[in-house]
């Protein structure tokens, strides 16, 4: 393998030309690693899924006495997003359990890995897992609470705010979870840091979702404006996270 040549190069103090991985290749490798681990252990997916069902169960109890006086359609959007936020918090905490155990994240940082690629890969994997859980939990929510309600035909539009909101949660959530990874009381700390920061996004997404459920016709301006604000939030906050990530993983 050219050991002698390398010794001489060492002695000469020059770096022998070494192949490097591109940021894209590293991103793919990191993403593949996360997905592979998750598919094998299903830890995050199962715990998030179970937690979502538990939240729905709690809803069942809390709404049991409302009867007909509460037009559930009005609060549905809020309930749905509350479930998503809490389930996402759980998932985000778990997503870094692997990295913190055995110092794996440090092993990755040791390599010439582009820090933004690391952030994006983790955020993407979290986004994928959150979406996977939502694909199950949202229809379940509809089944439990909106079966008898007068849901508008435009309800399918909720896919758009769900997407925007999940992207934002995954982005800024991954960022915060990296910070709280090795701290005391990391689960609670993540919630304390994340919820105030995510509040505007939540607000916009709930508005858009609510409009979609009640009927977009006549309310298009509200729907599109809320959606645009959610997307605007995503862009600004994820760009900030992108820029600040090296301070969170570096030293």
């Amino acid at each position: 393998m050219g050991r002698r040549k390398r010794v001489q190069a060492n002695v000469a103090g020059e770096a022998p030309a070494r192949p490097r991985a591109t940021a894209w290749q590293q991103y793919r490798a990191l993403l593949a690693k996360d997905v592979r681990i998750e598919l094998r252990t299903r830890e995050m997916l199962v715990s998030m899924g179970v937690y979502a069902v538990l939240v729905l169960t709690v809803y069942g109890a809390t709404l049991s006495q409302t009867g007909n006086s509460l037009d559930i359609l009005n609060v549905a959007s809020g309930l749905l997003w509350a479930m998503i936020v809490f389930t996402s918090l759980l998932g985000l905490n778990r997503s870094f359990a692997n990295e913190s155990a055995d110092g794996c994240l440090e092993g990755v940082l040791l390599a010439p890995v582009s820090r933004p690629a690391l952030f994006l890969a983790k955020a993407t994997s979290n986004f994928l897992f959150m979406t996977a859980v939502e694909v199950v939990a949202v229809p379940l929510f509809f089944l439990f609470f909106l079966a008898g309600a007068d849901v508008s035909s435009t309800a399918i539009w909720i896919v758009l705010p769900l997407l925007a909101g999940t992207i934002g949660m995954a982005g800024i959530g991954t960022f915060m979870a990296t910070m709280t990874m090795d701290t005391r009381g990391k689960d609670v700390l993540l919630a304390i840091l994340l919820i105030p920061v995510v509040f505007p996004l939540l607000y916009a997404c709930v508005a858009a979702t609510s409009t979609a459920l009640l009927g977009v016709v006549g309310q298009e301006a509200v729907f599109w404006r809320s959606l645009a604000l959610a997307v605007g939030y995503d862009v600004i906050v994820i760009a900030a996270a992108f820029g600040l990530y090296e301070f969170v993983v570096g030293s």
């Binding site: 991985a21 490798a29 592979r36 055995d102 110092g103 010439p112």
Partner: peptide, 25 residues
């Protein structure tokens, strides 16, 4: 280091392949 920096849920080969891809070997 005394921390293994190895992912317990991946096989030995998968661990090494992952690192190899990060370094572009």
């Amino acid at each position: 280091s005394h921390r293994s920096m190895v992912y317990g849920d991946l096989t030995a080969r998968e661990n090494l392949m992952f690192i190899a891809r990060l370094y572009g070997v």
